[in-house]
């Protein structure tokens, strides 16, 4: 079976600086794949390139079709939804409006309503705050809203950029429990994380990035026991 997402020789340059140098990876249907790496390793650049927010070189195929030249907003319609780094809630829009905007690509009002109900069932806290401006939510609630907003487009691939960033340990546990639940239900996930211990426990496979290149890859369980990973990311 061909992978859902197949990235080959991806490069991202910021002027003369090469942030991502020829990175290749794949995500198969139903997998939860984790990209690990320190700050500046190029993780966020890879996700931005994948969503079409920044120009990149190399090839990317998603769901059997080439992504070259596909603008960012059409990638959402094709099934890639991203929960960006720092959540990036629209602070001036209400919780409900944030969610509805996430469902922009839904053609019918009935489907939109159905998805809104589904997301609110998943995050009951949000239904208590529907009319509240997004900017007034706590960090944890904003993260739920960001995930809910991404789910509103019914993605085939849910991409998350450091979902645990800036959250209390208890909330980090809650977020990862939620991702594990999504994975169990068959959703395909691509997650960038610095919390390697947690990510490697849940993921199917992982890639380790250093200075814009992949230095290690394999099943998450194997990487967990890799001495290099243990020393660099697990503090062992």
């Amino acid at each position: 079976m061909t992978p859902l997402l197949e990235v080959g020789g991806l490069t991202v340059n910021y002027g003369a600086i090469a942030a991502v140098r020829s990175v290749s990876f794949e995500v198969r249907s139903g997998e939860m794949v984790v990209l690990l790496g320190a700050n500046g390793a190029g993780k966020t650049s890879i996700l931005k390139a994948l969503s079409g927010l920044i120009p990149s070189g190399g090839t990317a195929r998603f769901d059997g079709a080439d992504l070259a030249g596909v603008p960012a907003h059409e990638r959402v319609a094709r099934g890639i939804a991203q929960v960006p780094e720092g959540r990036r809630i629209f602070y001036n829009l209400s919780v409900k409006e944030n969610l509805l905007l996430g469902g922009w690509v839904q053609a019918s009002k009935a489907a939109l309503k159905q998805d809104l109900d589904r997301v609110l069932a998943l995050f009951p806290r949000l239904s208590e705050r529907l009319a509240q401006a997004g900017g007034t939510l706590s960090g944890g609630e904003q993260q739920m809203l960001a995930v809910g907003r991404a789910l509103m487009s019914r993605p085939k691939l849910l991409v998350l950029d450091e979902p645990s960033m800036g959250l209390s340990p208890k909330l980090v546990d809650a977020i990862f429990a939620m991702l594990a639940e999504f994975h169990k239900e068959g959703m395909t996930l691509l997650v960038v994380e610095q919390n390697a211990a947690m990510a490697l426990t849940l993921a199917t496979r992982a890639y380790v990035l250093e200075a814009g290149a992949i230095v290690l890859s394999g099943p998450a369980a194997e990487l967990r026991d890799n001495p290099l990973v243990r020393r660099a990311y697990l503090g062992a």
Binding site: P71, A72, A77, Y91, L93, V105, S153
Partner: peptide, 12 residues
């Protein structure tokens, strides 16, 4: 509010 993020919602 945040133009850079709007394409991620599928908005042209």
């Amino acid at each position: 509010a945040d133009r850079a993020m709007v394409p991620l919602m599928g908005v042209p």
